Amino acid sequence: MIDRVLSRLPALARSAGARAAPIVPPGNVAGRALLTVIAIMTFLASLTVGAVTLVSDTAAQWQSQIAREVTVQIRPDEGLDMGAALSRVQMVALSTHGILSAEAMDDAATSRLLEPWLGEGLKLDDLPVPRLVIIAINEDDPPDFAALGKAIRDAVPQASLDDHRAWVSRLVSMAHATVWTGIAILALVLVATVLTVVFATRGAMTGNRHIIEVLHFVGARGSFIAAEFQRHFLKLGLIGALAGGAVALCAFYLFGRWTAANQATPEADQISALFGSFSIGWTGYGGVLLLIVLIGVLTAVTSRVTVIRQLAAIDMLSPVEA
C-alpha cells in the first residue's frame, strides 16, 4: 500500500496547480448520497424561503388594503330612517380632511354579502341587518380617526366606526411570527446540511486515510489537501443545491400557473384569498438563488475546515504514535 502511495507522490505533491489524480474519488457512492441529501435540504430550504416571502408579501398587501379604507356600521333601530342615516354619515365623512370617498353599500351588495348564510331573495327591510358605509382614506395624509368616529356618532348615534386596527395588529403579528418561524426552519436546515457535510468529509478522509497521511507526513501542505476536498465538495454542493432549488422554483411556478388558470373554482378562490396569486415574485426567486449559492459555499467551507481540523488532530497524534 505504501509503495503505491509513494508512486503517486510526484504527481500529487508537485504543486497545488498540477494534479494527476484527485485525492477524493469524484464518483463514489458517498458522493452521490451527499449530493442527494444536499438537493433535498435545498428543496426544503427553498420552500421555506418562498413560503416566507409569499406570506410576508400577502400580509403587506392585506395591511395596505385594510389601511386604505375604514367601515362605518349603522345598526337598525326603531324609528331610524336608514336612508337618511346613510346620507348623514356620508356627508360627515366627506367633510373630514383625509377622506377620499364614502360610499354606502346598497341593498344588492348587502344581499350578496349575506347570501352564503341566509340564502337568496333577501328583503333587507324585513330584517334587522346593519348597513355599511365604506370610506376610502388618504394613506399619505390620513384623518384623525378618533375625531371622525365622534363626529359620526354625533350625527348618527346608531353608527360606529371600525378602523380595522385590531385586524392590522393581528396581521402584523402573524406575519412576524411566520417570518421568524421560517428563519428558524431555514437555520435548522442549514445546520443539518453542515453536519452532513462534516460526516461526509470525515468519511472521505477515512477512505483515503493512507494517501492523506503519507502526503501530509512527506511535506504536502494542509492547505493543498484541504483545497482538494474543498473543490470536490463545492462541486457537489452547487450541483445538489441547483437541483433542489430548481425543483422548488418549478413547484412555485407551476402552482402559480394552476391558480391563475383556475380562478373561477372555489379551491383557487380560497388560495387566492390567502396567498394572492401564489407568486413569490422577484424577491422570492432572488432569495432562492442566493440560498443556492450560500449552500454551495457553505458546503465547501465546511469541508475545508473539517479537513484542516482532522489534519491538526493527526499532527497531535503523530508524536505519540512515533
Rank of each mutant, 00 (worst) to 15 (best):
L290T: 08
D126Y: 07
S303T: 04
V305F: 05
G286R: 13
L34R: 02
G149A: 15
A85R: 09
I23P: 06
A220T: 14
V52P: 05
E103A: 13
T193F: 02
T193S: 03
T196C: 13
S173Y: 01
V179Y: 02
R170E: 00
V70T: 10
F224I: 00
G219K: 00
L236Q: 00
L47F: 09
G119M: 12
L249V: 07
G286T: 15
G240M: 08
L6M: 15
K123I: 02
F199S: 05
R165V: 14
R14V: 11
G284K: 00
P26I: 01
G98R: 08
A11L: 09
H97N: 10
V70I: 15
V320N: 05
S279V: 15
M91V: 14
S169P: 01
N262M: 10
G50N: 14
S64I: 03
M316Q: 05
H164F: 15
G83F: 11
P26D: 09
M82Y: 06
F275P: 06
H232V: 06
P25I: 02
A21M: 14
T181Q: 01
R153C: 02
R304Y: 01
N262T: 12
G240A: 06
A313N: 09
A246I: 14
G237Q: 09
S95R: 15
N138A: 12
S318D: 11
A30G: 12
L86A: 11
G276E: 11
V320T: 09
L127K: 00
V49E: 10
W258P: 03
V52A: 15
A260H: 04
R8E: 15
W167V: 13
I185R: 04
E267D: 08
A155H: 11
A33L: 15
D315A: 08
W167P: 02
L124P: 07
D162H: 03
F275N: 10
L132D: 00
G31W: 01
A166Y: 04
I134N: 07
L317K: 09
D106H: 08
V29T: 03
L291P: 04
F278T: 12
D144E: 08
R19K: 11
S46N: 10
W167I: 14
